[in-house]
């Protein structure tokens, strides 16, 4: 099970999947892009809006990833490992009970592209979207190992977001509302799962034994 964290290809696949998962969450951006393009009656706006939303996501992700990476390479690995594992588990439990809450955005709906970057940054960083990078950060030898992972993560996120936005723009929000998944609840469960996984890894990690 933990093998997935140690082969380069499977790591790429895992981060891409996580990115795609983020991208299809309506609260992470594509719905805002659909809203803006419908409101202005212009499909081009859909793609103009996705870009700043994607940048905001990358910054939000990047912020959380950079924090964890800095900690990983500056403090004893075991301490960092336990600290991150505890944080993710606790945040996951917190979100399990408050998954339906989100940051109160006071920038309104009639936003410019700059505000979209800010909105997306706040939405993704408070959502904790970079937290699931923890297993990769903790198992990385060098910072440069993380760059392709981060790049593929964002690329997959942008791709799935663009695909969702295009589909929903084409078929309408109405056709889609039955299938909206409760991403926030799934996200809380995922956070807890990763927290537990990290604790298990730390238990076996000291002697570099992988679980099978």
């Amino acid at each position: 099970m933990a093998d997935i964290l140690f082969s380069h290809e499977s790591q790429l696949a895992a981060v891409a999947l996580l990115g795609a998962f983020h991208g299809i969450n309506p609260a992470m951006g594509w719905l805002f892009a659909v809203f803006l393009s419908l409101q202005r009656n212009d499909q081009k706006v859909l793609y103009f809006a996705i870009l700043p939303i994607g940048i905001g996501q990358m910054l939000g992700d990047g912020f959380v990833i950079a924090l964890q990476t800095a900690a990983r390479f500056h403090f004893p690995i075991h301490t960092v490992h336990l600290a991150i594992a505890s944080f993710i588990s606790l945040y996951g439990i917190y979100r399990l009970f408050r998954y339906y809450r989100h940051i109160r955005w006071t920038g309104g709906l009639k936003v410019g592209y700059g505000q979209l970057v800010l909105w997306s940054f706040l939405a993704s960083s408070t959502h904790g979207s970079g937290l699931l990078f923890a297993p990769f950060i903790l198992s990385a030898e060098r910072v440069t190992d993380l760059l392709p992972l981060w790049f593929f993560h964002e690329l997959a996120m942008l791709a799935s977001m663009t695909a969702m936005a295009t589909l929903v723009y084409k078929f309408g929000v109405h056709a889609f509302k039955k299938y909206i998944v409760n991403f926030e609840l799934a996200w809380a469960v995922l956070l807890i799962a990763v927290g537990i996984l990290l604790f298990i890894m730390s238990g076996g990690g000291s002697s570099d034994i992988h679980m099978h």
Partner: peptide
């Protein structure tokens, strides 16, 4: 409240759909 799929069926995105 802890529904996994879909929104309240009485929510409509647009006046036309409602």
């Amino acid at each position: 409240m802890s529904k996994w799929f879909g929104t309240d069926p009485t929510f409509y995105p647009s006046p036309q759909s409602a």
